[in-house]
């Protein structure tokens, strides 16, 4: 009698490591975008959605080329970029100064920090008529609204950062008889910078949103006015192209500042 080998050969099963996603995040994101854009294209072409108010992505792409060639997008972008930059610079300087003021006095901090937190979550862009009265219909109104919008997160993070400086670092400064100015510039500010930078990053995005928003509302130059103008001309493909351009600029900006923050923290 011969021995019968009853053991069956089971092919090795390749299992995913625990917690490892099915697709790499980048591939998953690209697949989603391809699917969404493809679906939109088909829906628009076959009339499932109104192709006039929601033009197909291919039409939006043509509109994008059109506004680039005409030079409208480039000029509007430069103007919006400069206004957002000016607004962010004013907002950052003012925000850090006010954050320091809230930090330096416990009573003042307790009294006003909650107001700033409330302002951070309020749609400050709605105050634009007041600024129109003060500054007139010009770039100053747009820059002022952008600065106002980006200030609350910078104030809050500046206060948090300065509050969080380890007392022993301040004692080192005192032991070396540093002046109050040296104490701030050589110890407090650099120690708080990682937290302040987070506030500046959020503030810059708020500045872009406010600048584009006010440009749109008062129809005075930049990407906001371009979107408003294209909408008034019923050139919806180009209008959507401009809107997506603003979204892409914001995403790129957020990504770059995030990378910059990580680099700053890791190198120090």
């Amino acid at each position: 009698m011969t021995a019968v080998n009853t053991a069956t050969v089971v092919p090795p099963v390749r299992r995913r490591a625990a917690g490892k996603p099915l697709l790499p995040p980048l591939v998953a994101r690209l697949l989603f975008l391809v699917f969404a854009i493809g679906f939109w294209e088909v829906a628009s072409r076959y009339g499932w959605i109104n192709a006039f108010t929601a033009p197909a992505p291919s039409a939006i792409w043509s509109g994008f080329i059109q506004i680039i060639v005409a030079g409208e997008l480039g000029a509007a972008f430069v103007r919006t970029f400069l206004e957002a930059l000016a607004a962010s610079a004013i907002g950052a300087i003012g925000g850090i100064a006010i954050g320091w003021w809230l930090h330096s006095s416990k009573k003042i901090g307790l009294a006003y920090t909650s107001w700033v937190a409330a302002a951070a979550s309020a749609p400050l862009v709605l105050l634009y008529p007041l600024f129109l009265v003060i500054f007139g219909r010009n770039s100053s109104t747009i820059v002022a609204m952008g600065a106002l919008g980006c200030m609350p997160p910078i104030i809050l993070k500046a206060k948090d950062g300065l509050d969080g400086v380890r007392p022993v670092l301040l004692n080192v400064g005192r032991a070396f008889s540093l002046t109050p100015r040296q104490q701030f510039t050589m110890i407090q500010f650099p120690a708080a910078l990682p937290v302040i930078f987070t506030g500046i990053r959020i503030g810059l995005l708020f500045a872009i949103i406010n600048v584009v928003g006010v440009e749109f509302l008062i129809a005075f130059g930049g990407l906001g006015e371009l979107i408003s103008d294209l909408g008034d001309r019923f050139d919806y493909p180009a209008m959507y192209a401009a809107i997506f351009f603003v979204v892409l600029v914001s995403i790129a900006f957020f990504y770059l500042t995030e990378k910059l923050e990580i680099w700053l923290l890791s190198s120090k």
Partner: peptide, 10 residues
């Protein structure tokens, strides 16, 4: 010289 870590990380 202090007990806690007091070097400036930056």
């Amino acid at each position: 010289v202090f007990q806690e870590e007091s070097t400036f990380p930056w």
